[in-house]
Every structure is written in C-alpha cells, then in structure tokens.
Simulated assay, not measured.
Amino acid sequence: MSRMTPTHDEPGGPLRLLEIRDTPLSVDEVFAAVGDDAAGGTALFVGTVRDHDGGSGAEVTGLSYSAHPSAAAELRQVAEKVAADFPVRALAAVHRVGDLRVGDIAVVVAVSCPHRGEAFEACRRLIDDLKAAVPIWKHQTFGDGTEEWVGV
C-alpha cells in the first residue's frame, strides 16, 4: 500500500492534497500543492520523528504509525472544516504510516491564505485538529526496553 484514499479536490478548489502514505513524504510536494497566485502567505508544518519521548525522556529506538481505515475520511473532514473557518486558498496534509526512523518526516501540512496571519492560524488548526481527530496511532519502543502506544 503506497497511498490510502488520496484526495485531490477539483481544480482550483482549496483541498489540494490529502493522503495517508506508507512511503516517504516530500515537503516540496506539499508546498507545491498549496501554491496559489492569490495567496500572500503560506504556512507549512513538518513533523519529524525525534530521538526521545517528550514525557519520559527515554531514547526512542523504534516507531511505527498505524491508521484506522476511516483515517482518510476523517482527514478530509478536518481539512474541510479548516477551509470553511479560514479564507484558505489551498490546503494540503500528508501523514506517514508504517515503520519510521529518527529524523524521518511523519507529517506535512500546509495552508495558503491571502495574508500571513490567517495562514499561520489555519495551519496551526490543521495540524492540531489532525492530531486530535484523525485515527492515526504511534507505537514507540525505547532503549530501556519499554514501549508505548500514543493516540489510542
């Protein structure tokens, strides 16, 4: 499986790229997807796998993301809500599933709007709502032999 239910909105529509993939993500692809001549600001967020867990401080030695079959539909709902709440010219969000290593890109989201403030706010809402609502779970293993699921 290289892609799960890709979404490409109608030409000129704000939802340009919404995918869950088990292949490496491209920041350039997501940035290009939100290009729009009417946008004065583009905000982009890149989430990467870090070498430690924020809560325990333990060294991360392995990480795997899993997605529920409804994840692509949930991602679309999140994107539609952000596009409805902000003057979005273009929006893209791609999340990785499968085994990742420290430094790998796990998620890329981008939003372009007429002004920078709107772009920053919409991008922040997009990543926050994606993490809160889209059923994607992270399984981490640590150097001390412990493991945990996040988001379940």
Rank of each mutant, 00 (worst) to 15 (best):
E29P: 05
L63C: 11
T7A: 01
A33T: 10
F31W: 15
P135F: 03
V150S: 09
F86S: 03
P87I: 01
R76T: 15
R16T: 12
H139S: 02
G41A: 07
D37R: 11
V107R: 00
F31I: 15
Q77S: 12
S64Q: 14
G12Y: 10
A119C: 01
V78A: 08
L17G: 10
H52V: 10
A84R: 11
H115M: 05
D37L: 08
C113Y: 03
S64C: 15
L15W: 02
I105F: 09
V108W: 03
L25W: 12
A83V: 04
E74R: 12
V150Y: 01
G98L: 06
E118R: 00
A58I: 02
V49G: 08
A33H: 11
R89I: 05
T7S: 07
L17F: 05
V97K: 00
A71I: 08
F31T: 15
D53L: 01
L100Y: 09
G35H: 10
V78G: 07
P14M: 10
A110F: 11
H8N: 10
L25S: 06
D104C: 13
A119H: 01
V94A: 13
V60I: 14
A67M: 07
P24V: 11
G98N: 01
L17H: 14
S64N: 08
W137M: 00
E148T: 14
P69A: 07
V94N: 04
P114Q: 08
E74K: 10
G54M: 07
L15Q: 09
A90N: 03
P6G: 06
G143K: 05
T7E: 08
G35D: 15
R16D: 06
D36T: 07
D9Q: 14
E118Q: 13
D28T: 14
G117W: 02
L63G: 11
R124E: 14
G41P: 07
L63S: 12
D22N: 15
L25P: 11
A67T: 07
E19Q: 14
T42Y: 00
E10S: 05
C113G: 11
L25A: 06
W149D: 02
G145Q: 03
G13A: 15
E29L: 13
A67I: 02
L25H: 04
G62S: 09
A67V: 07
A43M: 04
P24K: 09
E148D: 08
V88M: 10
S70T: 11
D144F: 08
P24F: 09
V46M: 05
V30W: 05
V150H: 12
H68E: 13
H68V: 07
L130A: 06
E10T: 14
T42P: 06
S64H: 10
A93M: 13
A106P: 00
M1S: 11
H95T: 02
L15P: 04
I105Y: 04
D144E: 06
R124N: 12
A43G: 07
T7L: 15
T5V: 09
R16Y: 05
P69S: 11
R50H: 12
